[in-house]
Design a protein around this nucleic acid. Structure first.
Lengths: 136, 136
DNA sequence: ACTAGGCTTACCAGCCGCTGGAAGGTCAAG
DNA sequence: CTTGACCTTCCAGCGGCTGGTAAGCCTAGT
């Protein structure tokens, strides 16, 4: 099948499919006589695998590792879990970062009347955070 | 003062300071006779403002808006609040996105024994998420 | 047979927010 | 006078695409 159909079936845009191929994430597909890429159902499966991994926030490099593990009949489940757990830790870290940003911003926003007056506690804090709600 | 000192006082690396200047976030500083940038205490204040804004996750463009509002004596507090509230919404959205990733991954990780066996529910889900813990 | 349009190809450029490195000028201390 | 730390500019690259260009191909309708 052509790239457009593969895109449709996998949910990955054609451009992105070519990109994945170019960075070695998707192995080069076969080519039809006219030079068009020719995708098999298995290629589409791989694309879906990639899409799922990316959707869970794994980096392209990590998805590559996971794909290698998938292809490796001798792989140990623990290797997969290690990557997943490391990703979980990433997520937790980012969530905490966001939470502290949110808390600081919420405090500031609450102090801000949000009317037409020019005095703004948010800007005041930005210029001199010493007395503000703390670090973000 | 030189850029190194300004970096030290503001916590923003020299390279980044030059970058901020190049994209119009920090107005061009004065120059000493030797061509070196010459920072005033006010320049450092602006750098800290930028740093605080970036630390709260505002984009460079948003920080630019906030800086413009700061400089504008006639600004309305509501304009500032609008930007802050929009950033808060961004944060909430990202946190939810991360939370759903975390939930899906945690479910998968729990199902994964993490031992030396090759059968891995995580990889199985990646290849065929239909029966898995759902979308991320 | 011809044309219109939609698909495909490859390539280069740009997005964001830096960060690293090269190649050179300047300055203070030894 | 040299060393080393600082400063200058500019160009390139990170990740992960995405857009645009120019060209080739393929199919349906006239």
């Amino acid at each position: 099948m052509n790239i457009g159909r593969a895109a449709e079936l996998s949910g990955v845009p054609s451009k992105t499919i070519r990109y994945y191929e170019s960075v070695g994430l998707l192995p080069p597909t076969g080519r039809a006589a006219n030079g068009y890429r020719d995708f098999t159902a298995q290629d589409v499966d791989i694309l879906r695998f990639i899409s799922r991994g990316r959707g869970l926030g794994f980096s392209v490099e990590q998805v590559n590792e996971l794909l290698s593990l998938y292809r490796d009949r001798e792989r140990a489940c623990s290797d997969v879990k290690r990557i997943a757990v490391s990703r979980l830790a990433d997520i937790e870290r980012k969530m905490q970062e966001l939470a502290s940003m949110r808390d600081a911003l919420q405090t500031l926003a609450q102090q801000c009347p949000g009317d037409a007056r020019p005095e703004c506690p948010i800007l005041a804090d930005f210029m001199d955070p010493v007395h503000g709600p703390g670090k973000a």
